[in-house]
């Protein structure tokens, strides 16, 4: 059975249809990339999966089923239990998604204690352990730093470490590498691939960069103007596409970490 099934989803933003007829089925341990230019609606889709559409945004038709539960009809309490535990999300700049006036550690501990009734000290060491697992040197120092004082790559690793704390079944990644330099990009993408291998996490990654998508994805969905332009497994999209738009995106692919993967 698929872990996540999105069926014929329509999303309106201030009564204007911005995503229409989006469908996707994701199995366990699968990695799927949603690729498109900005404004194509790709971010809106994964925001909807976590029930975090911006003010004015609304799912107007279709269904999102996760692990047999319909997500569009969850109440507040059910969302709190699901978010950050079963489904995690990492962002383009995970540092910006943390309170700038509190330390990384404080935010991490707040997060852990939102899901587990454990003492602060235990939460702290659990957080430090997660940071170490994400190959962050000197976790203790990072915990005491403010997010804006860390480099882009470190911030992303912190974000992923947080996201993986409870080994979620589904990881949503919104442009996780676009704010990084090419070398760090390659590292982060590789590490995300390893998460799947190690924990069996399913990943949906939203990106404008087909190069990044091609590196780890099993499947690729190409979006344009709120609709699916083309979708299929990695090789079909990369090597056998007939679609003009996909071809255009492929031509625009930059190199990843100095190598060309396409």
């Amino acid at each position: 059975m698929a872990l996540l099934t999105i069926n014929d989803l329509d999303i309106s933003y201030n009564n204007t249809l911005t995503v229409s007829g989006f469908s996707l089925s994701l199995g366990q341990g699968e990695i799927c990339s949603i690729v498109g230019e900005s404004g194509s609606g790709k971010t809106t889709v994964i925001r909807a999966v976590l029930g975090l559409l911006p003010v004015g945004g609304k799912v107007t038709a279709g269904s999102i089923t996760y692990d047999g539960r319909e997500l569009t009809s969850l109440d507040k309490k059910q969302w709190h239990e699901l978010r950050g535990r079963d489904i995690s999300m990492i962002f383009q700049d995970s540092g910006a998604m943390m309170n700038p006036t509190r330390t990384v550690g404080a935010t991490f501990v707040e997060y852990i204690r939102a899901h587990e009734k454990i003492p602060k000290k235990d939460a702290w060491s659990k957080a430090a352990e997660m940071l170490t697992k994400m190959r962050l040197p000197d976790a203790g120092r990072i915990m005491k730093e403010y997010p804006f004082r860390l480099s882009g790559g470190m911030r992303q690793r912190v974000g992923i470490a947080m996201g993986m704390t409870y080994q979620p079944k589904l990881l949503l990644a919104d442009e996780p590498t676009s704010a990084l330099d090419a070398t760090t990009q390659a590292q982060i993408v590789r590490e995300m691939g390893e998460l799947r291998d190690e924990y069996g996490t399913s990943i949906i990654m939203v990106t404008h960069d087909l190069g990044v998508a091609s590196y780890i994805s099993d499947r690729i969905v190409v979006m344009r103007n709120g609709r699916i332009e083309e979708s299929g497994d990695r090789d079909t999209i990369l090597h056998r596409t007939e679609n003009e738009y996909t071809k255009m995106l492929l031509d625009a692919v930059p190199t990843l970490g100095g190598e060309r993967f396409v």
Binding site: L52, R83, G84, F91, D93, A96, P100, T101, E110, M162
Partner: peptide, 25 residues
Amino acid sequence: SDYVIGAKARGVAGWRILWLNVLPN
């Protein structure tokens, strides 16, 4: 601000976001 979305995505309760993060800031 973005960190409110971030905290929601991490499953932090609404009152915690408001009282311990948004209001002090």
